[in-house]
């Protein structure tokens, strides 16, 4: 488990410490949408409202801290959900190990 923990800690470090330094420029698709004039087709079309929109944890004024917090929460959430799903899918084998 120690070996797995190292990779998990690396993920948390990336989420907490590197995410605030992410490039603020639009990504490839956003750039093309802007350049080719179809970006506005997606504006205001969101079907759902997310609890942590745009990777900024709500209620934290400092943008870097809000990003770090969103990163850590998202990383833990992703681990939990994936672990749970994999456990459910692999139920048959888990018993016999």
């Amino acid at each position: 488990m120690g070996n797995l923990a190292k990779v998990f800690i690396a993920a948390l470090i990336v989420a907490a410490c590197l995410s605030p330094f992410a490039s603020p420029h639009p990504d490839g698709l956003e750039r093309v949408a802007e350049d080719k004039g179809f970006l506005e087709k997606g504006e205001g079309k969101e079907v759902i409202t997310s609890p942590i929109p745009d990777y900024l944890f709500p209620g934290i004024g400092n943008e870097s801290l809000a990003t770090s917090a969103a990163g850590v929460v998202g990383t833990l959430l992703t681990f939990g959900v994936m672990y749970g799903l994999a456990k459910a899918v692999g139920k048959k084998n888990s018993q016999t190990g």
């Binding site: 797995l4 990779v7 990336v14 330094f21």
Partner: peptide, 21 residues
Amino acid sequence: DRLIPKLGIIAAFIFAAQMVN
């Protein structure tokens, strides 16, 4: 049981890495 946590950890790592544009 050996593989299940690995899926969780790689998913978590990819989520984190996707934040770093």
